[in-house]
Design a protein around this nucleic acid. Structure first.
Lengths: 190, 190
DNA sequence: GTCTATAAATTGATAGAC
DNA sequence: GTCTATCAATTTATAGAC
């Protein structure tokens, strides 16, 4: 049996509220009531509203990085590797679109220190994609003029989906991720 | 000579503030001070903070739609037409990245009535892209399995750029738009 | 159409009892 | 670790003089 602690309920409530209304428009009262506790109880677990955001954002960034690095290591063949990277990155954003929205859109709401910490993970995600593209070009599998620009473009497919994707909606995250993977291959193929 | 009215200064200040901090985190005092007027003077021109957002957002949506419809009408040849549509759509987002950020990220902050009004323009943008792709498929110029998904994907390139693009930064909006246009052609080519 | 002053409500966070 | 009660600051918006 799974024990859901108050701390976990609080984080889940924060994800729900931040994803729905955005960080600035969310009140600590709103989060507390979604978690079924009083406004004051929030501060037993977190020093501030920003600390809640930081926890959600850092965890989300770590997962996204883990997903894309895992896919990068899954194959040594450039086309297959790119397919896996884009598919899993887009799939993660579809399956976790609320956390994804917080990761992508509430980055600026982090404190300068927390933003700097998270920025390291973001750069690693981008670098992982650039490395995969560069390797594919060197091995003749890809024809790419602008590697950094193309890396941003293929990541954009997954990132931008959190803007409109509804979990449990008519669109399947799996099919969307497969589409993005094929589009990325077409964008880069020699 | 160009006469800059207080009303225009106010709108420019709102664009600056909303793009920088987001709608919810922007105070009417901040907008007023950027426009060089007192907090009370804002309400001479707009009933509410949301009314300022609505004005900026509606105008931005109208421009984006105008841009993509203009490009759609610029050529009858599917590949050339798609190239023009993606190039001008991405270029508009790069050249107007602050308004673009408000258009794309503050949609949820509009009142239900204003959101419904703007939604019509958003659907027309998406439909314009789907129509261009469908026509290209029918005429044998494109090979596309999922037209709606691919339409979203090519539009995503321009939309997601507002998340990180800095006007006056090292990246040229023109080159970025050219890249996106070429990537879109590769994504769809038969 | 601009100002100063302020109302009315809401906010993030804390105090102190249990 | 949770609550009730509340502080102190800030917010959107308005009143009324000029």
């Amino acid at each position: 049996m799974t024990v859901v602690t108050a701390r976990e309920r609080l984080l889940a409530a924060a994800v729900e509220a931040f994803a729905e209304k955005g960080f600035a428009a969310t009140t600590t009262r709103d989060i507390a009531s979604r978690a079924g506790m009083s406004p004051a109880a929030v501060y037993v677990h977190h020093d501030s509203k920003e600390s809640l955001l930081y926890t959600v954002s850092l965890d989300g960034h770590r997962h996204a990085l883990e997903i894309i690095e895992g896919a990068a290591a899954s194959s040594d063949e450039p086309v297959e590797r790119l397919r896996a990277m884009v598919r899993s990155f887009s799939r993660w954003h579809a399956d976790n679109s609320r956390v994804g929205r917080i990761v992508q859109y509430e980055y600026h709401a982090l404190s300068p220190e927390h933003r700097a910490e998270v920025a390291v993970l973001r750069r690693r995600i981008e670098q992982t994609m650039r490395d995969a593209l560069t390797d594919g070009v060197e091995r003749g599998a890809f024809a790419i003029d602008d590697v950094p620009g193309t890396a941003f473009a293929v990541l954009s497919l997954g990132i931008d989906l959190v803007r409109w994707f509804e979990p449990g909606g008519s669109q399947s995250g799996e099919r969307l991720a497969d589409l993005h993977a094929e589009l990325a291959v077409k964008m880069t193929r020699a």
